[in-house]
């Protein structure tokens, strides 16, 4: 299966490098045609206002919603859906997938995961930081960066929390949607991508 990385803006190339290092075929997605070629999609970090605008303008956002909602949301049963999609969003990608966003000038989102997320809740760039996190099902610590990161303020009942940092959820999953508020890709760590792909392939 081909994995797409949404390439409107942000650090999409870093995600593609991680996928290539896992020997997974990966393409940049900027249009509906590109999206039709992939079975899984990563929405990278970047500016959520910019990414949200292009999702809307190109129709790619609507198609993501349609393909996520088609068929079962249980990642193990894919047969009922004609062309299901799995999505992993990091940072800005997490924001655009959320049901509700707080904070000024919030972008319109796809509403595909039942969480409330606060944009730039940690502050400006001076408050960006690096950390090591532990993730359910992955042994060892994973080095990650929180860059002007959003903060998950609420998770719905059917949302699984896979990692927390400082008592706050930072990696969560609901059905075919996985989101993290941090960046593993800038460190070149592959384990969270592997976790994502293991539910897909």
């Amino acid at each position: 299966m081909v994995v797409g990385v949404l390439a409107f803006q942000g650090d999409f190339f870093e995600h593609i490098e991680v996928l290539h290092s896992l020997r997974v075929p990966a393409i940049e997605v900027r249009s509906l045609t590109d999206l039709s070629k992939v079975g899984a999609l990563i929405i990278p970090g970047g500016e959520s206002t910019v990414i949200a605008k292009f999702l809307e303008e190109t129709g790619v956002g609507k198609e993501i919603i349609r393909r996520i909602q088609s068929g079962s949301t249980d990642p193990r049963s894919r047969s009922s859906a004609p062309h299901p999609l799995f999505v992993y969003g990091t940072c800005a990608g997490a924001i655009v997938l959320s049901k509700k966003v707080t904070g000024k000038n919030a972008p319109r989102t796809l509403g595909l995961i039942d969480i409330t997320i606060d944009r730039n809740a940690y502050g400006a760039q001076l408050q960006s930081f690096e950390a090591e996190i532990r993730v359910k099902g992955i042994s060892g610590k994973i080095p990650v960066s929180f860059i002007r990161a959003p903060k998950i303020m609420r998770v719905g009942k059917t949302v699984d929390v896979l990692a927390e940092y400082g008592g706050v959820p930072v990696l969560v999953r609901q059905g075919r949607v996985l989101i993290g508020t941090f960046h593993p890709e800038v460190w070149g760590d592959r384990r969270i991508h592997q976790l994502f792909l293991s539910t897909v392939v």
């Binding site: 390439a7 409107f8 803006q9 942000g10 650090d11 999409f12 190339f13 870093e14 970090g45 970047g46 500016e47 910019v50 940072c91 800005a92 760039q125 960006s128 930081f129 690096e130 960066s145 860059i147 002007r148 960046h183 800038v186």
Partner: peptide, 14 residues
């Protein structure tokens, strides 16, 4: 400044 270099990565394509 590695977090700064990371913020620059997030600006790419913009």
């Amino acid at each position: 400044n590695s977090t700064g270099a990371d913020l620059a990565r997030m600006l790419k394509g913009g």
